[in-house]
Design a protein around this nucleic acid. Structure first.
Lengths: 407, 407
DNA sequence: CCTATTAATTTCATCTTTCGAACTAAAGGG
DNA sequence: CCCTTTAGTTCGAAAGATGAAATTAATAGG
């Protein structure tokens, strides 16, 4: 019962570090060769792992590690056999629910996407039942499209723009929905009989981005997502600590600042989120009205274009947004002291217009030595990062459950 | 190499949950009876554990756990034999370095204090060498006072008011010292040949307070310490995550606010720390000058007394401090979403004078549902909490090292 | 083409840890 | 006194990990 956790560690190493030969697995896990040999052969028999065909070449390409080892395509001795998670072991579905859009992705056990769909519809018009039915229909459509039998489905992940209770998994509030405090996981779990994982969308993006760059997967990284709202996800050593994400968008900058969606005033979000920028711009510019308080991507693009045109009022608006972003980064650094801060999301497409005020304020707002010891990255990631990250998170949970079940 | 971690888990359970019978250890660790039996008998042979004499009575007293079990002093069957960490296994020294005070505590392996000393001296006049010499002298004095032979000393913990680099253990800056970026751990480690653990003082207090109440040891708790400066320590499931603590005291409330010690303006600390309150009060009140920018406890008591006298300018000052405290709590809750927030430190002795503004601002500054789901505790702990917490942290490290060494 | 060299992986005997089942120990209750 | 209850131990058996040595598969060099 309390032993055999090495299987799990082995799978975890493979999950993080991609295809590896057994030698490398022994090094990474600290286990002996015979132990690795035994474990892998059993995992291969279970069809959880498989050996990849083209071995040495792809390894020396992928691995740009410490010492000059894989310089030449082939070294002297017996070539290593690369092991990977068997993509055929099962499949995972990730769903991203956000303003007027439900995105679904089906991925294999290795995390590669097989098919996806984007369903645009007025999400705020849905009640809890309708939303669940819609998600179930989307999942079924994905299963059908990829000819996936029901028993191959291992888990479902739902990334939600909004606030999720970390302990219960309940959805507390979402700008994309008119319903509050609902349990979206349980109906889905009952419909398919598999694990359903809930997470905040910023957490999902944080996972996708940190997994994409090995440097970011080490230490504490905070990913601030700027878009319809302002979210943050914390990843420690490649693992999402709090599935619930952080509400940094609702840190207050001024007690009597602009109105925020949350009902309070002066939140960072009320300066920086796209709905706030668009709303404020419309008070002095002729712009088409936004659908249900939410400007579309095209509308935001139009706004940026106008700002580039040199309207001083718009420039001022984006400078204020830059200051708000700096405050968000400052609060994150001061409270968390992360090794890495990643700025992500569609809102960063306007970063050049915010940059000056952002940099100026950041220097005032963070202790210089603390700022110096924090690396800040700009990753204006595409929207698929949400479902990608959610696939990763769901796979981790599925891995863990499977290891516990098999003991 | 990769096995035998169960010894460690067993010791950890005993460290957290005090004296327990073997049955309970089996339940807590998930191991079988024979496994526990074997492990404990070996640990007893190593003198790391010991059986306590008075068994059943003290257990049913200490354990107010789930179901009605230990209601009556003695139950039916064979009485349980309680196991504890053997206090004689070795000793630990914890040192707290803060403004004009070096406090030292020597504790046994169970964490009970045996002797302590408080050395008042102008710490800012010390250079790195003098400080290390002083600490070494204090340690030697403690060893002598308790007749502790050198080989009995297992570890040393140094809690420092100020900023510590989590990765290297170097002291970056401390208000108590005029030196910056020094390594205090290595000279001490070399002098005694044992592990030296560095931590921020707020982290130490956080550990002491969360260990004292079982409810706080679960989930994520953030301890905000208000005193000479504003610090914060994060404890996750009873374990200090970042030894370095958080710099929440330097989150900015106003770009052109009052001058802070750190060189910047408008930090939370510049409104709330006792040096800031005293400094501002002296601009309109006749108060004795503070030693090296640091008011003494007596001076702060005098300040509070005057404020109670009804001076409206002083009242206003404390109300502003209350608002700053609310902003600190708000930022902590928004960024971390902790289960518990603990307010601690000598600065809270004036909490009643801050309360009104604090509560008012807190409601404006945090999302109502988030505030509702966070428990906030007031713990104006005495100064000994720093060394107490540092003993706990050092013991954890010593435990872990010992388990790895013994394998 | 053959053989030495190199490196990855497996085989084998051994050791440690853990577990299930049966057993002993110490109390209370009838 | 014997039964019941609860705590803890003893004893093979089984699982899991290890080091040393063997095996395998490739390259380099003659």
């Amino acid at each position: 019962m309390a032993r055999g956790s090495n299987r799990g560690r082995l799978v975890d190493v493979l999950r993080r570090q991609g295809p590896l030969p057994r030698v490398e697995l022994a090094r990474s896990t600290g286990l002996s060769f015979p132990a690795i040999s035994g474990l892998t052969s059993r995992l291969i028999a279970e069809e959880l792992l498989c050996e990849t065909e083209t071995a040495a070449t792809s390894w020396s390409d992928d691995t740009d590690e410490e010492d000059a080892d894989g310089l030449n395509g082939r070294r002297r001795g017996r070539p290593a056999v690369l092991l990977t998670l068997n993509p055929e072991f099962g499949r995972i579905i990730a769903i991203s629910v956000r303003m007027n859009l439900i995105e679904t992705l089906i991925a294999d056990f290795r995390g590669s996407g097989l098919a996806q769909s984007r369903l645009a519809l007025p999400t705020r018009a849905l009640d809890a039942g309708a939303l669940c039915d819609l998600m179930i229909a989307q999942i079924n459509a994905m299963l059908e499209a990829t000819a996936t039998p029901r028993h191959q489905l291992l888990g479902i992940g739902i990334a939600l723009q909004g606030m999720v209770n970390a302990d219960t998994g309940r959805t507390l509030w979402s700008p994309a929905l008119s319903i509050t405090d609902v349990d979206l996981a349980t109906p889905t779990r009952q419909a398919f009989g598999v694990e359903v994982v809930m997470a905040n969308d910023a957490v999902a993006v944080a996972l996708a981005l940190t997994a994409a760059e090995p440097a970011l997967a080490q230490g504490l990284s905070a990913t601030i997502m700027v878009g319809h709202g302002i979210g943050m996800g914390v990843v420690v050593d490649g693992e999402a600590r709090w599935g619930a994400g952080s509400e940094i968008g609702h840190v207050k900058l001024a007690p009597d600042g602009p109105q925020c969606r949350c009902g309070q005033r002066g939140c960072i979000e009320a300066y920086l989120a796209d709905y706030a920028l668009y709303r404020d711009a419309r008070t002095f510019l002729d712009l088409p009205p936004a659908d249900s308080q939410q400007p579309s991507e095209a509308q935001m693009a139009l706004l940026r274009e106008r700002a580039l045109g040199g309207d001083p009022r718009l420039e001022h608006l984006f400078q204020q947004a830059g200051r708000a972003l700096a405050e968000a980064v400052a609060a994150t650094i001061s409270v968390l002291r992360p090794h890495h801060v990643i700025l992500a999301g569609p809102g960063l497409q306007a970063f050049d217009m915010m940059r000056h005020a952002y940099e100026e304020r950041l220097e005032q707002a963070v202790l210089p030595w603390l700022l110096k010891s924090t690396a800040i990255y700009l990753r204006p990631s595409e929207s698929a990062a949400i479902v990608d990250g959610m696939v990763l998170r769901t796979l981790r949970v599925v891995d863990r459950n499977h290891m516990e079940a098999t003991e």
